[in-house]
Design a protein around this nucleic acid. Structure first.
Length: 230
DNA sequence: GCCAACGTTGGC
DNA sequence: GCCAACGTTGGC
């Protein structure tokens, strides 16, 4: 498969007439393969909201990664930083190109109005650049069918699409950029002494491009805006 | 540019 | 359904 990056491209509400539903549960291939249902979303975490049906934790805050620096992949520049989102019409874009089942599943859980950190990855200074909010719930990612697209997936069929995306809208920059290195210091400290970042997915599941945050994690990270850099 | 960690694929 | 080989992610 051709994937790489977890990203968003410069298309905005163009496809927003697509319905906000998804063929529920139709293709949790990864989960079926391992026979472990709900493993991806259930890996520890807060239980602030429960779904009606089960005891599966649900999240309402997210972190989404994208690359702010130019990098050519299959002849296409995959750069998409927070400034690029901000520059789109209505400061809104679709988060296409996610080709990882866990990340996709988290996107499917997202609800309109929820907040997400915009994280800059694979760049000079990785870290959290700003905040965005979910403005459209999961719908089919059209780029999987586009042969010209970097994230084209020949294994995905039109009558049973594998990949979905959400629309996000720029909300604001963080008051100061919060570097990964700083978050990591807290993470290591909290792992020893206890603290909100001790299990943060950014470190415990570093390669996941769409991650859930607990309320405690989210609030702690946000509070760093008002602190001096360490 | 390197490479560790980890997700995916496919043979058996 | 195991697991080795392979490919990707992303920090450094």
């Amino acid at each position: 498969m051709p994937p790489r990056k977890t990203r968003s491209s410069a298309k905005s509400n163009k496809h927003s007439d697509a319905d906000a539903h998804l063929n529920e549960g139709s293709d949790d291939v990864a989960q079926r393969k391992t026979g472990k249902r709900k493993r991806s979303a259930a890996v520890k975490g807060d239980v602030e909201n429960k779904n009606d049906d089960a005891c599966k934790p649900s999240y309402s805050r997210w972190l989404m990664k994208s690359e702010p620096e130019s990098r050519i992949e299959n002849g296409v520049d995959v750069k998409f930083g927070i400034e690029d989102l901000k520059a789109l019409p209505n400061q809104t874009g679709c988060w296409d190109g996610v080709r990882n089942y866990q990340a996709r599943n988290f996107m499917r859980e997202m609800k309109v109005g929820q907040q997400a950190f915009f994280y800059h990855s694979n760049c000079k200074e990785p870290g959290i650049a700003g905040l965005m909010k979910i403005v459209k719930e999961a719908y089919v990612d059209h780029t999987q069918f586009d042969k010209k697209d970097v994230h084209y997936d020949p294994s995905s069929k039109a009558d049973n699409p594998k990949w979905h995306m959400v629309d996000v809208q720029f909300e604001r920059m963080v008051k100061r950029f919060i570097p990964l290195a700083e978050l990591k210091k807290y993470h290591l400290e909290h792992r020893v002494k206890g603290g909100p970042l001790k299990d943060m997915s950014l470190f415990t599941r570093a390669r996941l491009s769409v991650q859930p945050l607990t309320a405690e994690e989210f609030e702690f990270v946000l509070s760093l805006e008002n602190e001096d850099p360490i």
